[in-house]
Design a protein around this nucleic acid. Structure first.
Lengths: 240, 240
DNA sequence: CGTTGCATTGAGGGCCTTCAATAAAAGTGG
DNA sequence: CCACTTTTATTGAAGGCCCTCAATGCAACG
């Protein structure tokens, strides 16, 4: 019964029993964060790394005019701020979507671990490379698809990620987002997202109620929204 | 007289003389790629990693309707395809913008090197984390700024990157892009980009001719387009 | 059970697109 | 080096996708 971080890293690397144990221990004693609360704010210079143990979080920027753009959804096993190992300062904020459990891991611990366990260092690097693929797909989605396809594509991506961690049951899964979050993800307005969702419903592509998203025919939705799942599938390459 | 890869990695890590020498040798005997030619295509399963030694390249996706979205500009010192260490298959293509020199490095060599030189592994990881920041800023730009600000922001980013490698002279630098490239970068059409550039010129924010971009007052352009350069500046953290 | 936030729907407007034509520039072959 | 072709840039007109503003109903929450 591995935790989320271990599961995630084992998709891209072989870990020894000792390494796995170290990872487990990092997730001990997470702090409880209330729904909507910021975990990190732009400008922060955190002394700890923050790891999502339970719940969802969003990575986002606020622009001078007050507009928000979400640049990532963080689910259990995702680090919030690996980049502060290099950049020190946060250039964006992170907030819990619903109630969440966050582990606080001292930067020094991570630096120590990665120096002692090169296999772990490589696993973290490779996980970062996978994340890059997600960001690229996000850019393609926002740049070259209509609002309708954009929304469908987002839902396919959520489906895949949740499915990868066994959280899809009967083609349905929990999607704890308001239309405002979806709008801020896709670079649109809540009003228009409302119209788009209404159309997705009318065309029988989704059923969404009470933050529970059902996709009756995922292949059809993928086809319509131009979703290609390759970018999400690390193939567990062995170098040894 | 270090090469571009060494310069780039030394911004995020300490390298020994031996490590630097290894990096230099990787860039030996690059192949010449003609302007516009693909270096890698979607679906490829490359046996080598590709490193830009000279010139510019773009990372892009083509959608079923023929639309193109550019997701990165690669300049000397950038790897084209580090992610194939994990994902194996290319989920996008890479093309040379002008004539370029590309080094072909066997995947096995990189895997060997990163296992033998953890410091190098860490440098590559950290460089990847910096790239992630660029992608996030890209998303914010496309999602929440007008075409006018988007174009200005792109030009500020190019200015910064070129300045970081000493290629800005008298507030001007080479920008080997057509309006089509800029459009495909920002999720707009070439026609509209033309109008936007015309306005940037009229307002004295840029002078652009013969692929040479002059920004008379970079701070003014940054202010107008909401550019924050923090995301581009690794602070060279020491862990030792 | 009131308050607050969220979803829905309508009307009107604006930013950007599409289509089209022309001019300018860059690349090509003799 | 010039004629030819192709690509790129410029400009105009019309239209569409999405935004803004606004009002209503509904669900969530204390």
């Amino acid at each position: 019964m591995a935790n989320a971080l271990t599961r995630k890293l084992e998709r891209v690397a072989d870990l020894t029993a000792g390494e796995r144990e170290v990872l487990e221990s990092l997730c001990d004693r997470p702090r409880i964060i209330r729904a909507g609360q910021d975990i990190l704010r732009e400008g922060d210079r955190p002394e700890h790394l923050h790891l999502v143990v339970e719940g969802w979080a969003i990575r986002y920027n606020i622009l001078p005019n007050g507009a928000r753009q979400i640049t990532a959804y963080l689910i259990p096993g995702d680090f919030c701020d690996l980049h502060v190992l290099v950049l020190e300062q946060m250039d964006h904020s992170i907030a819990a979507l619903g109630p969440a459990k966050i582990a606080y891991i001292p930067k020094a611990t991570v630096n120590l671990l990665t120096r002692q366990l090169p296999e772990l260092l490589q696993a973290l690097w490779w996980a970062t490379l996978v994340d890059e693929g997600v960001l690229r797909a996000w850019i393609v989605n926002m740049g070259r698809r209509s609002a309708f396809k954009r929304a469908g594509h987002l839902m396919c991506g959520m489906y895949e990620r949740m499915n990868n961690v066994g959280l899809v049951h009967g083609n349905a899964f929990s999607l704890p987002l308001t239309q405002r979050e979806i709008a801020d993800t896709l670079g649109l307005t809540p009003v228009h997202i409302g119209r788009v969702i209404s159309r997705l419903r009318k065309e029988g592509l989704i059923a969404l109620q009470k933050k529970e998203l059902l996709i009756p025919d995922i292949e059809r939705l993928k086809a319509i929204s131009g979703f290609d799942s390759r970018y999400l599938h690390p193939e567990h390459v062995r170098v040894n």
